[in-house]
Amino acid sequence: MIGERTLTLLGARAIAVTREVGGIALMTGQVLRALLPPRLDGRELVRNLHRMGNRSLPIVALTAFFAGGLMVVQSAPFVKRLGATSLAGWAAGYAVLREIGPILIGLMFSGRVGANNTAELGTMTVTEQLDGLRALAIDPIRYLIVPRVLAMLIMLTALTIIGDLVALVGAAVVAYLVLDIDWRTMYFSFADNLTPHDFFHGVYKSVAFGAAIALTSCYFGVTVKGGAVGVGRAVNAAVVAAAVSIMLLDFFITYATA
């Protein structure tokens, strides 16, 4: 029966998801335990920050610019009909700072840095490099995972702050080009309608998104099985899990901070 088969499939999927959530929770515990006492490999942290920042800054800046512009374009019909040019910056800025900015930047960061991290750790896992570390009495969690988690958390937060600025510039540029709204109007529209609270709302979210992306990407990386095919599959699973986590966290943070 089709009904029975669907149920079996759903059941298997539910078990798989539960196992993954459990695995990620376990890894979170291990990371926290490795931070007590906080003996951090500063060198690895700095190296990862540098690499991750280099790799993702261009795409994040480009995405943020378009995101800011898009919000202006979406609010344009409304603004044009009402002739309320002073509202263009409000709508675009509010949407970018609180929602669109952190989410799009988070998704891009997950695709660039998170996916890369999964692929790297996955390759290390299938070529037994993690066992190589353990054989040298070096804890892979402490040496490999913790610096990566911290670096992603710090870097995504920093990128979101930078991205917010770029997005506001993008909004102003598009408003000027498409709606003929001059810079000063846009500036005052931002300044009068946006509060630091809107900005921090997005930054809190980026910290949580960074943690989620880091933990999911590391988890799927170190649990890779089955060579090159397994690495591809793990990257896929990691970005999907990160996207779901971002949307869920967004929901809970929005409600919790209301």
Partner: peptide
């Protein structure tokens, strides 16, 4: 493991590091 070392079949050097960095890592850690 500090007293019992292991050399794997496929060497398991860290491919993101040079040979020197590979050998320096446990020196720095231990």
């Amino acid at each position: 493991r500090r007293r019992v070392g292991m050399v794997f079949q496929n060497a398991t050097l860290f491919d993101a590091m040079t040979l020197t960095e590979n050998v320096a890592l446990p020196l720095r850690k231990h």
